[in-house]
């Protein structure tokens, strides 16, 4: 077994690109679900419209990179309105079904042959990240030290990604300490009570949906820019489910919960992958072949999600008394 590689990939996963974009998606879900109690199962659609907004603006229309970012953000806000207006008056489980359906609609349209000339079908779009790397301040070369070393492109994506995470966390921190955040948390507890105290619950839910959608959609940009491409199937429902797992892992309704959760999630995934692949190749494990290692990791994600909800719903660092997701 190659311990060097396992160690290096695992450490890289703690701060890597996957961690960054999943953390951003999870920060959005934390606002929706952790603080406001909105079961938005369509988070992947926010990432998708942002990523595609950027990609299509740059590659198909031929506009500059920054306008693409603008288009992506506007698309995320519009999606929040489209999702929110029909559903925010409904009960939580209806909201879950509608948002997951909406996310599937978005994905199916992006991957359709019908709109292939715009969205590129199942291959997606590539070649829109040039504008981003043109302003890369890192000179060509390798940065960091063993086992953490990155090339200049990775450094640039990670720098921007972690700055975005820091900003998002700061925003969440400030808001959730404020009376605005208090209203959200109260809505999570009992929206009728909040209504009886003169707060416009619908408006706050909408604000929450937009904020979580916009912060989450940054993950779509990061994914698109890091890989230089967007594909429809990256933004499927499982992405949303993994982000939920991350939120619960790190602790719902905690500012750094999603970030810590994302880090742990990817470290575990990469570590398990490394160990199992190594064990299979060196013949230690014989009941599995190498192609089954990948699915096995996600089977563990499912198992982990069940066990977390049952035994530690407050997350690994959470305090049971402050458990935000509840027993309603």
């Amino acid at each position: 077994m190659n311990w060097d590689i396992i160690l290096s990939t695992t450490l890289k996963a703690a701060i890597g690109v996957e961690t960054v974009w999943y953390a951003l998606a999870a920060i959005g879900i934390n606002i929706h679900f952790g603080y406001t109690g909105l079961l938005n199962f369509g988070q992947s659609a926010f990432l998708a419209v942002a990523g595609y907004g950027l990609a299509v603006t740059v590659t198909v229309i031929g506009l500059p990179f920054w306008i693409g970012i603008g288009v992506g953000l506007v698309a995320a806000v519009l999606l929040a309105f489209l999702l929110g207006i029909p559903t925010l008056r409904l009960r939580a489980d209806y909201l879950a079904i509608v948002t997951i359906a909406a996310a599937e609609i978005v994905r199916l349209i992006f991957r359709s042959v019908e709109f292939k000339s715009v969205f590129g079908g199942s291959d997606g779009r590539r070649g829109f990240s040039q504008g981003f790397y043109e302003i890369n301040p890192y000179a060509e070369g390798t940065y960091g030290f063993w086992p953490l070393s990155f090339n200049e492109r990775e450094m640039w994506v990670l720098t921007v990604g972690w700055v975005l995470i820091a900003i998002a966390c700061l925003i969440v921190f400030l808001l959730m300490k404020s009376p605005w955040g208090r209203v959200l948390k109260a809505i999570r507890e009992d929206e009728d009570a909040v209504r009886s105290l003169g707060k416009n619950v619908f408006s706050y839910k909408m604000q929450s949906l937009i904020l979580g959608g916009v912060l989450g959609c940054l993950g779509g940009f990061v994914y698109g820019l890091a890989t230089g491409s967007v594909q429809p199937d990256i933004f499927g429902t499982e992405t949303t489910f993994f982000a939920y797992t991350i939120v619960i892992l790190g602790g719902a309704a905690r500012v750094f919960g999603p970030v810590v959760g994302a880090s742990i999630f990817w470290v575990l995934l990469v570590l398990v992958n490394g160990l199992l692949s190594g064990a299979v190749q060196s013949g230690v494990i014989t009941f599995m072949d190498i192609t089954q290692v990948g699915p096995f990791r996600f089977l563990l994600v499912g198992l982990g999600l069940i066990l977390l909800l049952v035994y530690r719903p407050q997350g690994i660092f959470g305090d049971k008394r402050e458990l935000a997701i509840n027993a309603r």
Partner: peptide, 14 residues
């Protein structure tokens, strides 16, 4: 709770 159970069912599905 029913919300928690719903998320558990996602775990089961995965």
């Amino acid at each position: 709770g029913i919300i928690a159970a719903m998320i558990v069912s996602i775990g089961v599905a995965l």
